[in-house]
Amino acid sequence: MASIYFDHAATTPMIPEAAAAYAEAAGAGLGNPSSLHAFGRAARSRVTAARDALADLLGCSAAELVFTGSGTESDNAALFGAAEAQRARGRTGIVTTSVEHHAVLNACLQLEKRGFRLTLLPADETGRVSAADASAAIDETTAVVSVMAGNNETGTLQPYAEIGDIARERGAVMHVDAVQAFGYERWDLKRLPIDMLSLSAHKINGPQGVGLLYVRRGTPFQPLLFGGTQERARRAGTENVPGIAAFAEAAKIAFRDMDARIRLVEDVRDAFLNALRTDLGEEAFRLNGHAELRLPHIANLSFPGITSENMLMNLDLAGVAASGGSACTSGSLQPSHVLTAMRLPPERLQSAVRFSFGMGNTRQEAEKTAKIIATISARLRIS
């Protein structure tokens, strides 16, 4: 069992308040939110209260929010739903970035197989895309533009609002994957040039298996799932009432404590990097991603001369949990598609490790991990 958990970008521990909300809703007895009897009405009331709370936090109408089963489902529902609706209007172009999460990239590749024209915006060496490149790619035939808020591997922030203005001007639907940025940025969706936004509960100390999709009123959209009329006929299937109640509770606390959360992770991240400079040496590692335009809780580092697999295996043996990149592809031996798109040299691609911080982490853990890495590096480089 790892004693130091530095993999919060993969998933976060559920906070007690969210766990209590889950247990309360789960223990409330029978009740399908679609049923008309008293049990069903009680369940529906919990879903409605959660939706209202999340809408208030996001600056949108509660009617514009759709509960899903994950961030991946939210991404897929947004992309397929908007693309197919836009195709009926003669729009068949998809524009996204080369550094998106696979939930977006693989969905876009499937849309390409269905006849859509796919354009991948290139990233610079920091992992950031250019609004000028987006402007050149978006035209009157573009159906959907999808740009993430902050990258899940490097933390680099994207100019999604600037690109959203371009998309809106040209009649394309603008989708933003905010799964990793949720809890670290504030949103006012009534004002932002965003038509669809994907979120997930387990990135903000809520439960796994609950996602959210914002669909601005009037946005062209076709459902991904067919069945009942749940979620205003935009997502069939009985709602996960306990998970939704816990999601809302976690979100309330995440937004209430956001400034303190940012200070915490910045403090741990800075302590970690400073300790590495002292214990390992400035030249023994490289920071991947943008130095300033970034999410505060992620540090993607390369240790040239030591493969990612060797570093991660030795960290795990020493009781430290980190990641080679996206948790969704952690079993793959292929280099990160994000770092590859940034055109990093092979020695940095093959030695990258993502450390991500969150509630419960301390400066002491950061400093201890730096010493562990220095010990591992000395041993592996000698051998």
Rank of each mutant, 00 (worst) to 15 (best):
I194P: 04
F355Q: 02
A26Q: 15
R381V: 04
P220A: 02
G331L: 13
L54N: 04
V241H: 10
I262S: 13
I166Q: 09
Q208T: 09
T375W: 03
T375V: 07
R87W: 07
P242Y: 11
A251F: 04
I163H: 05
R263M: 08
R269C: 00
T11S: 14
L380N: 01
A137R: 08
N32G: 04
R354M: 08
L344T: 01
D316H: 09
A352G: 09
R191H: 11
E249H: 12
R91W: 08
Q86E: 13
P207T: 14
L380S: 07
D270W: 03
M258W: 05
A21T: 05
E283S: 15
G206H: 14
L105K: 05
T238V: 11
H101A: 07
L213N: 04
A254K: 01
A248E: 03
L65T: 05
G171H: 10
S383V: 14
I306T: 09
A233N: 11
L57K: 08
R232D: 05
L36N: 00
S351D: 11
A2G: 06
T68E: 12
E169L: 06
A53G: 14
R89D: 06
D124V: 06
F116P: 02
Y214T: 10
E347V: 10
L264G: 12
L57E: 06
E239R: 09
A250H: 00
S45C: 04
G237M: 14
R46G: 02
D259P: 07
I94H: 04
R354Q: 14
S383R: 12
F182K: 07
D56T: 05
A9N: 11
V215C: 15
T219K: 10
T362I: 14
I244M: 03
S35N: 02
N76L: 14
E365L: 13
P207V: 07
R117P: 01
G90L: 03
N240W: 09
E162M: 04
E84I: 02
T92P: 02
G218D: 15
V145F: 08
V99D: 03
G81F: 11
A299Q: 01
I15Q: 11
L121A: 01
G27S: 10
E153Y: 14
S146A: 15
T278K: 15
A134Y: 07
